[in-house]
Amino acid sequence: MAVDRSLIGKESPEEVFEVERGAIRKFAEAIGDPHPAFRSGEIAPPTFPTTFRMGIPGVNLELSRVLHGEQEYSYRRPIRAGDRLRCKTRVADVYEREGRLGKMTFLVTEIEGRDEAGELVFTGRSTIIVR
């Protein structure tokens, strides 16, 4: 197995991400979303947290062997320009499946983002496939 099941439950250190209007605009342009609130940089598109890059201690992947499986987000409120979000991510699951080309390891991570008052803003879940 490319990723050990003992990593389940491991968390990243908390990181603070400052959401900038220009970053929201650039992201909206990059994904081709014409929504005026996104293009103005007022409110971030739903997939914006994919820009929050965080490492988890002990999880070291060779990027040439990684595929993005799926991603989902749930929101309590939209992410807005000027937000300072305290985020952390953790390994939720690790499992193997047999594919056409052999065994594949699935790494499931969860991310949580809270505002400066400690209120939950969003959660996310991602599945990464390691070949």
Rank of each mutant, 00 (worst) to 15 (best):
V121N: 07
I56N: 00
I79K: 01
P45H: 03
G82E: 09
R100S: 13
E18P: 01
A81P: 01
T105M: 03
G69H: 05
E96C: 14
V108S: 08
K10H: 12
E42L: 05
P78T: 02
P36N: 08
P78I: 01
R77H: 08
P57G: 03
M104P: 14
F38I: 11
T127Y: 03
E112T: 14
A28G: 10
T50S: 15
P13D: 12
T123S: 07
G58S: 03
L63D: 08
F17L: 06
V130Q: 00
P45W: 02
P57D: 04
F52G: 07
R90Q: 11
L67P: 02
A117S: 09
F48S: 05
A23R: 10
R100W: 08
S12E: 01
G118T: 13
E112M: 12
R90K: 14
E29N: 12
V91M: 06
D33A: 06
D4I: 03
V16P: 06
R86I: 08
I43D: 05
F27T: 08
E119T: 15
F48E: 02
A81R: 01
I111E: 08
P49F: 04
R21N: 10
Y95V: 07
L61Y: 04
G82F: 10
F17I: 03
Y73L: 02
E70D: 15
L61A: 10
R97G: 11
S126Y: 05
S12L: 01
R84E: 13
V121C: 09
R77F: 06
V59M: 00
T51E: 11
P49L: 05
S12G: 04
L61F: 06
M54T: 02
E14G: 10
G55K: 00
L101S: 14
G22W: 10
P36G: 09
